[in-house]
Design a protein around this nucleic acid. Structure first.
Length: 961
RNA sequence: GCGGCAUUGGCGGAAUUGGUAGACGCGCCAGACUUAGGAUCUGGUUCCGAAAGGAGUGAAAGUUCGAGUCUUUUAUGCCGCACCA
């Protein structure tokens, strides 16, 4: 007996899905070529970190949307690149390794395998030949390569471009006589100030007990979140990337990309451009002035004190011997606080340095203070304080009893500062009478002309710290000679992650790579050798830090274009074909991290001429989060409670139970339509084994001796994050087993608009599953009859709708459109190939498996294959060697949509009273006459004469009385 | 504090250029079939009202013949940023 496809009309989704997934794979249907006459289109999903928990039903949302779009583009005749890979370096695997001793690679690969099998079941059109993993040496070779390029480059402010560092060296040699006199080390130190990847001393949260650096959100109130150990601020030499150099271009580039306004705004805020002025303030009794940055140059006449950041290099210069002890005490206090704590604590603190600055305009002497409300990392780390017009300065002035001089007419500064940039200037010398806006401009000109300062643009964006004291990341291709870093030659890449005896920091506090025995660089033989051989002559120590998570994800989209190329990150011609990602889909949580870093990385590679586009992601869409929908049972905790009795949700407001129940999360997988599966609940956990219930009807299981049956226990519910601890995680594998991948795909889209966050509620899934079944039934006896006008109208309405929906990423509205078409056509008892075949193509992006099956049924009819022949699966495949995947998207013929008549809703004073049907293209005047002649019109006019009759052709009639 | 997004039946949501608010689905109600069912099919389902009719898209105001949609104010929720000079 052959595998019987077409005789049984039951919708056997698991057979259908398995069959076509296999057929697609065997025929390489999703393999994408870099050479094609077709127009190119690149659809990318943000690649996942393969966590140990596997995919839940929220993860594939964006993947399904991008898959629909990819399949649509393909049907429209594009060569579509749609790859998938794994962001596979990261902390969870390392943490797990520390706990269990298992190598992170092992667990990572296991997790990836699980992800792949889960993803494959959903039927995505990924070209798996192009899969990348960031932890694969073949991949991270190019991460390391990019780092070396950054090390060997500097940012030229004149051209606003990265340039080879050799150019800078040549410039030094030509123009700076001192250069030649410098030692090799001194030269290297000087170059370090320019390199795009550079070493710098940075402040980090150091936890001595854990022997590691912690991120800000891993620290709470001076203690590590994990373990609760003390955390101190420590200066460490770390690799940094000069992202800030690109601030201007990163900001400007936003104008040219099609991202949501909210995302662009987030990036603008993050980059934080502010236009202001740098000004010199002389210090009384000293030669050297110091420089401050201000956006309110117009307020110089109101400066009553100066403030330095505690870390400012000016501090030691201006502190007087009398004040030294007090200043040192204050600095010590600041040092032990994390940046976050300083921000969180809004108490005014500060200390007087003992010195005075001279106001360059009034020549008045003003005291210089130190306070941690001024940040070292922004501007120059020093400010002029104008308490009348800045709330932070105001608070400080009040606290230390410093004068407050109002500079704007009518501004009341007795209670708070006047921060708005509006009004007329007073107390401001030559600025008096000007509007603030003009005063800022006038002052900028003044300071430029007099040379006491200059106009300056400042950015908030900081350089990225690029070192991590971790094991599971890309090693830096760097070794140290005389304390200075040198990069490995390009041909020696990748520098592979070594084996270590332990994944923890060493006893001396070195990063985990300090545990590697074979971790030294033999410069002569260009290979990694045993650490014991280090002689600092030809064999040198290698860098012990690894790169952070964003390293591997910053250019992966380029690698997909040419994933097996071992000569280049991406071949120039290949890059010139695909150019950039046309559509990028992912979560908004990456708005400031990944999406800034990869734009930076891309611009850098663009500057060096390796790639042809300045921006990586042309269009970007954020999919919303899928939230969980939790269920609760209510344990009775009132008088006489046994801790064993659960009250049905509909009763908990009754006086006897009100405030006497405790909600407990219950596994959503043993709840159906909010009705608890009693037996499953009793079996779920030992503590519920003897659970008794008060059911929805008020009867109690104790009394009835109930075990399972018709009585219902109703659960409460709430929308919460989808997480294990809430017992509301739904696994796509389970959904697929029960309903099939096509139903899952459809339902995910049906839930709501792509960009919105929305709760997952498995309850509604029956609806779309039923729809697929009904549609499926229409493909039983397909005929070649001529379709009727009505059938064609249904079809073309659908074509128009689905096309519009996909072009506008409105996937949720497509499912109802399919349902409506199915309803209409099944009412017409339509079984015609001319209708059903295009519908299969329309459905293919959304539900590819069932669509493929439907399409082949139609094809078989068309080819007049005898029924004996196409009963056999393989025979039918051999016979019809094409797939719906490669079909052609149907065109909407507007002619079919034209109706003969026009229905006009007729409003009286804006309220619809009846509808009038008249022939299409009835002239306005005629419609008006028809309405007035209508039998009901006089009733609604109620004796009034119409003041005005509005007829919008093809739309509506409104009679104003 | 700043910025962004949202708010429509019992629930998810639809309404694409301002033109019949509540499509479609879930749930619920009634019926049919089947003697259990969480199967299938048919009809109903915004609210108030027996009906006629009235009210209605978080709230208030405005523009308009006409507002869920545009404008202003405001409330609530979610997300992001935050002593940025």
């Amino acid at each position: 007996m052959h595998a019987n496809l077409f005789l049984s009309m039951e919708y056997n989704f698991s057979e259908i899905e398995k069959k076509w997934q296999k057929a697609w794979e065997e025929n390489g249907v999703y393999t994408v070529s870099n050479e094609s006459d077709k127009p190119h289109y690149y659809v990318l999903d943000m690649f996942p970190y393969p966590s140990g928990a596997g995919l839940h039903v929220g993860h594939p949302l964006g993947y399904i949307a991008s898959d629909i779009y990819s399949r649509y583009k393909r049907l429209k005749g594009f060569n579509v690149l749609h790859p998938m890979g794994f962001d596979s370096y990261g902390l969870p695997a390392e943490q797990y390794a520390i706990q269990t001793g298992q190598h992170p690679e092992k667990t990572t690969f296991e997790n990836i395998d699980r992800y792949i099998s889960q993803l494959k079941k959903i039927g995505f059109c990924y070209d798996w030949n192009r899969e990348v993993r960031t932890c694969d040496p073949k991949f991270y070779k190019w991460t390391q390569w990019a780092f070396v390029q950054m090390f060997n480059s500097y940012f030229d402010p004149k051209t606003q471009k990265a340039q080879p560092i050799s150019k800078l060296i040549a410039e030094f040699e030509a123009n700076d006589p001192k250069w030649a006199t410098l030692s090799e080390r001194e030269k290297q130190e000087r170059l370090m100030n320019y390199r795009i990847a550079y070493l710098a001393d940075t402040k980090v949260n150091w936890c001595p007990k854990l022997g590691t650096v912690l991120a800000n959100d891993e620290v709470s109130e001076g203690l590590s979140v994990r373990g609760g150990y003390p955390v101190e601020q420590r200066v460490m030499r770390q690799w940094c990337l000069r992202v800030s150099a690109y601030a201007g271009r990163l900001l400007e580039g936003l104008e040219r990309i099609d991202w949501t306004e909210s995302l662009k705004e987030t990036q603008r805020n993050w980059i934080g451009r502010s236009e202001g002025a740098e000004m010199q303030f002389a210090v009384k009794g000293q030669d050297a002035p110091f420089t401050i940055f201000t956006t309110r140059a117009d307020t110089v006449f109101g400066v009553t004190f100066m403030v330095l950041a505690p870390e400012s290099e000016y501090v030691q210069r201006v502190v007087t011997p009398e004040q030294k002890a007090e200043v040192d005490a204050y600095l010590a206090r600041c040092k032990n606080r994390t940046e976050r704590e300083r921000i969180a604590d809004r108490k005014v603190t500060g200390v007087f340095t003992g010195s005075y600055a001279i106001n360059p305009l009034t020549q008045g002497e003003i005291p210089i203070y130190i306070s941690d409300y001024v940040l070292a990392g922004y501007g120059t780390g020093a400010i002029m304080a104008v308490p009348a017009h800045d709330s932070r300065d105001y608070a400080f002035a009040k606290h230390f009893n410093l004068p407050i001089i109002p500079l704007i007419e009518g501004a009341d500064v007795s209670e708070e500062s006047f921060d708005a940039k509006e009004g007329k200037m007073i107390n401001s010398g030559f600025l008096n009478g000007m509007e603030v806006k003009d005063a800022i401009q006038a002052m900028k000109e003044y300071i430029t002309n007099t040379g006491i300062g200059r106009v300056k643009v400042n950015y908030r964006l900081r350089d990225a710290i690029f070192s991590r004291q971790r094991y599971w990341g890309e090693p830096f291709p760097v070794y140290y000679k005389d304390g200075m870093p040198y990069t490995l030659p390009e041909e020696s890449l990748p520098l592979e992650l070594p084996e270590v005896s332990a994944f923890l920091p060493t006893e001396t506090g070195e990063p985990p790579l300090g545990n590697a025995a074979i971790w030294a660089w033999d410069e002569k033989n260009k290979k990694v050798v045993d650490k014991s051989l280090i002689d600092n002559k030809t064999i040198f120590p290698l860098e012990l830090c690894t790169m952070p998570g964003f390293a591997g994800s910053s250019a992966y989209y380029l690698r997909y274009m040419d994933p097996h190329n071992d000569q280049a990150l991406v071949d120039k011609n290949v890059n010139a074909y695909w150019r950039q990602v046309d559509l990028y889909l992912g979560g908004s949580e990456h708005a400031t991290g990944h999406l800034i870093y990869s734009r930076f990385w891309n611009k850098f590679l663009y500057d060096l001429g390796y790639i042809c586009e300045d921006e990586p992601f042309k269009k970007l869409i954020n999919q919303g989060m899928i939230q969980g929908r939790s269920n609760f049972v209510y344990r009775y905790i009132g008088e006489g409670a046994t801790g064993n009795l659960y009250i049905s949700y509909n009763l908990i407001e009754n006086p006897e139970y009100k405030d006497k129940v405790q909600p407990i999360h219950v596994n959503v997988n043993i709840v159906n339509n909010d009705v608890l599966d009693i037996n499953a609940f009793r079996a779920w956990m030992p503590e519920f084994k003897n659970a008794e219930f008060v059911f929805a009807d008020g009867t109690s299981s104790e009394l009835t001796g109930y075990t399972a049956g018709a009585k219902q226990y109703i659960c409460g519910w709430a929308v919460e994050k989808m997480s294990k601890s809430m017992f509301n995680v739904v696994n796509p594998d389970d959904v697929i087993a029960k309903f099939g991948a096509d139903t899952l795909r459809l339902y995910e889209m049906f839930l709501g608009p792509l960009e919105m966050s929305k709760p997952w509620d498995t309850n509604g899934i029956d609806g779309v599953h039923r729809f697929l079944k009904r549609l499926w039934n229409m493909y039983e006896n397909i005929t070649d009859e001529e379709p009727t006008k009505e059938e064609l109208r249904s079809l073309h309405k659908l074509i128009k709708k689905i096309t519009w929906d996909i072009e506008n990423f409105s996937f949720n509205t497509s499912i109802p459109a399919f349902m409506i078409a199915q309803n209409e056509l099944s009412a017409l008892k339509c079984s015609k190939r001319a209708i059903l075949e295009p519908i299969a193509v329309l459905l293919a992006p959304y539900a590819p498996h069932i669509a493929e099956e439907m399409w082949h049924r139609c094809q078989a009819i068309g080819k007049k294959v005898s029924s004996e022949n196409f009963i056999d699966l393989q025979a039918s495949l051999d016979e019809v060697r094409s797939f719906v995947v490669n079909a052609e998207w149907p065109e909407c013929n507007e002619a079919y949509l034209v109706e003969d008549t026009q229905k006009y809703p007729v409003q009286f004073n804006g309220k619809v009273r009846f509808t009038l049907e008249c022939p299409k293209d009835t002239p306005k005047e005629e419609v008006e006459k028809l309405v007035l002649a209508h039998e009901d019109t006089s009733k609604y006019l109620a004796g009034n004469t119409p003041k005005k009759i509005i007829v919008v052709p093809g739309r509506i009639v409104n009679i104003v009385m």
